[in-house]
Design a protein around this nucleic acid. Structure first.
Lengths: 196, 196
DNA sequence: GCTGTTCTTGACTGTCTAGTCCAGAACCTA
DNA sequence: TAGGTTCTGGACTAGACAGTCAAGAACAGC
């Protein structure tokens, strides 16, 4: 029928996400995104609307990928649930610590910058947090069934606590907190989980 | 000698801080800050240099006030230490939940937006976090001496965990997490502290 | 190959904004 | 009150940036 797109939408969104990620939303320039993707601005505007919508698409994709990553890390049989939980929490601490450019997580950065002014951003963030908490709760419940965490504890509440700890590690990482401190937080969080 | 300043520097910094707070650094306009303070831009630039330095001053002042607030909340005799800790953590959760405009804490917002690009911001954030952790550790140690927290636990590690939980609550609050959830996180964090 | 449609490119526009500058005001000291 | 100094206000500048647009390119169907 007509001339087809010469670019891969997902790839463009990934590049755009990286730009927003490093500079923040307000400081990101559409010209830079166009240059980084190799597209003209017309194509960008034609495909995504305006800067805000481009961000929202990139932000949503990023959050979905994040949840998917957590799912891969935590899903599985009850038997290894506690170990998966432990590995995931330590991995987040280590990844945060080794993020040299301190850009942290786009979810945190975007939410901090925009959720107060853009309900769509707040809604995506809320959904993402809820999804992660759900995955944590399932994993905690698995560990309870496997006898690694006290069965009397409320898995949802423990998951909420762990979510807060993870987001806290993220936040502290942006201040260039030492890798040791971040790891200590993760280990302490695991240590205080009620054992059977 | 010469004409004296017609404005109070601290008051101007407070107003500027509020502007940065609501919109973020990049989106804040110097013209708006000038209008909000009632000053001409010449006075603003004469007194503070440029936008970045104005922000750094406001940010530093805010962080110092924050630490001072935590100190007031947590300092005191061993006897009431645990209760002060408990009250403070619940108060942070409630304050975060009732922040209707979701602007959160300027410390978190400024750090998220700028620490990757401005070492001065990262340094202030790191100092502030360390100070708060120190205050938490002292309070935990007091509660240990008062027999409310297990004496075998490392107060610094518990303080690190609590700091992460507090920052996590802050981060989740920006996504408009329900007041109940935030309070549940705070209560769970308190519940998992090791008792004697 | 022709036609109609959609995509691409990048120059262009209008607006916004950080920072400058200067003329005059306010104040202090003597 | 005179003189020197700093402060004030706001007009001005230069550059940056989001978003538009028109001319042509690439393709599918015929």
């Amino acid at each position: 029928m007509a001339r087809p797109r010469s670019f891969d939408e997902d790839e463009v969104l990934r590049v755009a996400r990286d730009q927003f990620w490093t500079t923040g939303y307000a400081a990101a320039r559409v010209d830079d995104i166009a240059a980084a993707t190799g597209l003209g601005k017309g194509s960008l505007y034609g495909a995504f609307g305006d800067k805000r919508h481009l961000f929202l698409r990139a932000f949503d994709d990023h959050c979905a990928a994040l949840v998917e990553g957590v799912r891969r890390a935590l899903d599985g049989p009850d038997a290894g649930a506690y170990e998966r939980l432990r590995a995931h929490i330590l991995a987040v601490a280590d990844a945060t610590a080794s993020d040299v450019c301190l850009r942290g997580c786009l979810l945190a950065k975007g939410t901090a910058e925009l959720s107060g002014q853009d309900p769509a951003v707040a809604a995506t963030a809320r959904r993402t947090f809820a999804a992660i908490q759900g995955l944590l709760a399932s994993c905690v419940a698995g560990a309870q069934r496997a006898g690694e965490i006290d069965r009397d504890a409320d898995p949802d509440r423990l998951a909420g606590l762990l979510l807060a700890v993870l987001r806290g590690i993220e936040a502290l990482g942006k201040a260039d907190t030492s890798p040791d401190s971040l790891r200590a937080i993760a280990e302490t969080a695991l240590a205080v989980l009620p054992r059977p």
